[in-house]
Computed example of a mutant assay.
Amino acid sequence: MADTTDADFTATPHRADAARPRSEPIVRTITRDDVRAALSEGLSDFRAAPRFGLFFGAVYALGGIALVILTAYSGMGYLAYPLAAGFALIGPFVAVGLYEVSRRRETGEALAFGPVLGVVFSQSKRELGWMAFVTLFVMIIWMYQVRLLLAIFLGFQSFATLGDFLTVVFTTPEGLMFLVVGNLVGAVLAAALFSLTVVSFPLLLDRDVDFITAMITSVKAVVTNPKPMLGWAAFIVATLVLAIVPFFLGLLIVLPALGHATWRLYRRLVEPAPESAEAA
């Protein structure tokens, strides 16, 4: 497939910009085989256009590193773990550029940073911006509940280092209770956000729908396919944890692989728009 240079910095008009009647997205039933196929196709996208994956992966990794360093220098190193966990929640928004790369590979459009970033920035000012707000809001809730649970279970202790915090968490009954309850609450928030975003971000990039419709469609996709989607969510969590452990560096590979695969899974979960199906 032809790949153009980065000299073309004029974003081509996105097909969602064209005036046309909106159609209600239709959710398909999938199996675990579809999830495996989507992952394989996503890896193929990454191999075909690695510079885009590495770029967006680096942006995500550097953001995580910067947050951890900031907490350390501000004397709140004990927040490094919950902050890293919360940072993983905004992955779907960062991966929008990867969805656009996969979409362009499908349609044969130019693969250059100018058009790709141009579409991402233009969409961020529309319905995609509201979805980014939803994602950020959930992350803020996560951080507030961490502070609340710290106050409930550990009082208002001060921890000089992350090591001191981990010692208290893993060696005291109060610390263990904080760990259990915190992770349970985090799991509920993560599951809710996964259900709201797994399809909504790709759908908003691909179709002319509002963000409420996109979130409803995303939840429908999860409810209609509970087993394969639960397996996909568990795989995402496991790979993100492994990617974050080496100081976020694993995100260079994991984010693009998951991002491209999420787009491919979206294609299997949601019927094409009627005009797209007719064109095909």
Rank of each mutant, 00 (worst) to 15 (best):
D208W: 03
V27K: 04
R126V: 12
R147W: 09
G57L: 08
R22S: 13
I90Y: 02
K227A: 14
T217M: 03
L176D: 02
A221R: 07
F201M: 08
T161Y: 01
A112I: 03
L149Q: 11
G91N: 05
R36D: 07
F247H: 05
F248D: 01
P226N: 02
L242A: 15
I216K: 14
F137E: 04
I65A: 05
A214C: 10
G155H: 09
F248P: 01
T224H: 13
T4I: 12
G77Q: 05
D3C: 01
W130I: 13
W232I: 00
S23I: 07
S195D: 01
S218H: 01
I212C: 00
G75V: 11
D208E: 14
R267V: 13
Y144G: 02
T4S: 14
V254G: 03
A84N: 04
G175L: 06
A190S: 13
D164N: 14
G231Y: 02
F235E: 00
S40A: 15
L154P: 05
R15H: 15
L83R: 05
L258H: 09
P25E: 01
L136H: 07
P246T: 06
P256E: 00
R47N: 07
S276M: 11
T217G: 04
E127S: 15
Y266C: 03
L204F: 03
A234S: 10
H14I: 07
L265S: 03
P173E: 05
G64M: 08
P92V: 10
A2W: 08
R147P: 00
D45W: 06
R47T: 14
A38N: 09
L62R: 01
L240T: 08
M131L: 15
L252W: 06
K220A: 08
F201K: 02
F93V: 15
I216V: 15
F121Y: 09
G77V: 09
L230I: 13
F52R: 05
G75C: 10
A95K: 01
L252K: 05
L205K: 00
R104V: 11
W263P: 00
V222L: 03
V180K: 08
V237W: 02
L193S: 03
A80W: 04
V209A: 04
A80V: 10
D206F: 00
A48K: 07
F46K: 02
A187T: 14
F55M: 13
I90G: 03
L251W: 04
A110S: 14
E127L: 07
M177K: 12
M139V: 15
E106L: 14
L269W: 02
R103D: 07
M177F: 09
L240V: 10
L269I: 11
A279V: 12
I26Y: 00
A80P: 00
V241M: 07
L258T: 10
F153H: 06
Q145G: 00
F178A: 09
L184H: 02
A49F: 11
I212F: 12
G86Y: 05
P13R: 12
Y73D: 08
Y81S: 05
R207M: 04
S158Y: 13
A280C: 00
V27C: 06
R28W: 03
F194V: 05
G75K: 08
V134F: 12
G75T: 12
T171H: 10
I69R: 10
M76R: 15
G175F: 02
A38V: 11
I26V: 15
S200F: 00
L67E: 07
E100S: 04
P228C: 06
R126W: 09
M76F: 14
D45S: 15
P226R: 03
